[in-house]
């Protein structure tokens, strides 16, 4: 009997001492933390993507609670969610529009021929250490998926040599933008689905030689636009999304089909055109 009691007492004693140690420590080293931080953290989407510029959701929640920063937004949360959080903190919310990433290139293997037999590491940045671009157009999407690796939401996939973005899954966190060595990923409003899928600033003839769907800077879109929303600069068209109305006139006139309609509205829009 004693063989059981003695070890029991010894271990029990240890447990008691440790427990009182913990108790003292928890009282002595107690740090006050605003309980709202935990609550705001609960309300955030919890993607921990870092798209807000902070080290995860908790850090962002802490920032929101401690600072009167009305510009700080979670790119993943919808406007309503963000409003709810700010209302909880007793502040006015600036309603943000949902943004999505879009690729400024349509240089698929069919449109823009591969120019070499690249055999290095399968990463866009690694490829740029060996060559400017694996394709005929030196501005083109390399298609080795550095952005895919950066995306936390499974919104990006490589198809036929370029990255294809799922607008529904894209949360607009913007992490893919700096991940592209060719600087081809740009944010646009979710509802503005017309994009110039080209980033080539070479002269028209050179650009056309490199890729069948390159923007040649012909100015037809600029003339066709009734809203002053598209401008050609340095042989490349650029859409001003503040003014764009999704009318699709530029898409119709583009001789090289370098202006395209993104997202699931494609079919509807094309039929309307």
């Amino acid at each position: 009997m004693l063989e059981i009691i003695i070890p029991g007492l010894i271990l029990g004693g240890f447990a008691l001492i440790s427990a009182s140690g913990l108790l003292v420590a928890s009282k002595k080293f107690y740090v006050f933390e605003d309980p709202r931080i935990a609550e705001v953290n609960e309300m955030l989407p919890g993607a921990n993507c870092g798209g807000c510029g902070f080290a995860g959701c908790l850090a962002f929640a802490e920032h929101l609670v401690k600072n009167e920063d009305t510009d700080a937004i979670c790119p993943v949360a919808s406007g309503e969610e963000m409003q709810k959080i700010l209302a909880f903190l007793g502040r006015e919310a600036a309603v943000g529009e949902k943004m999505v990433a879009s690729l400024m290139c349509n240089g698929t293997h069919d449109n823009c021929k591969s120019q070499m037999d690249y055999a290095g590491i399968e990463d866009c940045w690694a490829a740029t250490l060996v060559t400017d671009s694996t394709k005929a157009c030196s501005f083109a999407c390399i298609g080795l998926g550095s952005c895919v690796k950066a995306c936390n939401f499974d919104a990006m996939h490589i198809e036929n040599g370029i990255v294809v973005i799922d607008d529904e899954k894209c949360t607009g966190c913007g992490l893919c933008v700096p991940a592209c060595p060719k600087n081809l990923l740009h944010m646009r409003p979710y509802k503005k689905y017309i994009t110039v899928a080209c980033y080539n600033t070479d002269r028209g003839a050179d650009a056309r030689k490199a890729c069948t769907v390159a923007c040649i800077g012909c100015l037809k879109c600029e003339k066709a636009c009734n809203y002053d929303a598209i401008h050609v600069n340095n042989f490349l068209a650029k859409i001003d999304y503040q003014k764009c109305t999704n009318c699709g006139d530029c898409v119709t006139v583009c001789p090289t089909n370098s202006i395209i309609i993104r997202g699931q509205e494609v079919h509807v829009a094309v039929e309307n055109v």
Binding site: G120, I121, W125, V130
Partner: peptide
Amino acid sequence: RRLVHWMRFGKNI
């Protein structure tokens, strides 16, 4: 292993 390419990639990162 493509050690040099990885090292160059590491420098790039």
